[in-house]
Amino acid sequence: MTSGLRVEGLTVKRGDLTICRDVDLTVPKGEITVLLGANGAGKTTLLDGIAGVLPAAAGSISIGARRIDAIPVHRRASLGLSYVEQGRSVFSRLTVVQNLAVVDRSQHTRDKAFELFPRLADKRNVRAGLLSGGEQQMLIIARALATRPTMLLIDELSLGLAPRAVRMLMDTLVKLAESGMGILLVEQFAEVALRVGTTAYVMERGQIVHTDACSTILQDHTSRISPYYLGVASRQQPEP
């Protein structure tokens, strides 16, 4: 499949420290691909590498037939790659509408955002810093969508949110995938992600140690995934 995001042999370092080593991964269009792993496994580092926040020390990244691993961050975004960072990365001093306007000031973008998240329409002139955690995550998704991505990387969307908000956001992601977008979803507590995903990758100490269909992993409680699945995995340290 050449239409999605393809990562081959990717190694990502932070300073001199190799965090992710030799990662192979594909994110097809129209599906949610799940990336699981304990704290410190290297999930965020991998996404940083794909989005260009950190340089690729080795390997290749491509969207469709196009290599993107030597392209600067802002140009990767204009090639259809959108990255929702870990933590609530709203511009807190700007209003909801202004947050969207950083990308695009058009009425169309605004309408689409409010159609997807009607809650945001009521708060359009509220400073983003004053929104609830769930509303902030909605705004971040809406803002990422304003760049009209074909590939969406999402890091820990559900962190600190109530189960209802999580379910609502997951439903939105399913809709987006159905409309043809490819989504790479990072989650530490796996069950919600596995229920919406197609394929799952499991990361340990910076390497992919397991790949399987999400449904298989969900059923197989005895597999090596269950510690993550139950959310009781102990903190892993990467090898230096």
């Binding site: 961050v73 802002h74 975004a77 990255y83 960072e85 511009f91 807190s92 001093r93 950083v102 760049t147």
Partner: peptide, 11 residues
């Protein structure tokens, strides 16, 4: 406020 986020949004 967030120079990196602005860059990730294509600016």
């Amino acid at each position: 406020e967030r120079p990196l986020t602005v860059q990730l949004l294509g600016v």
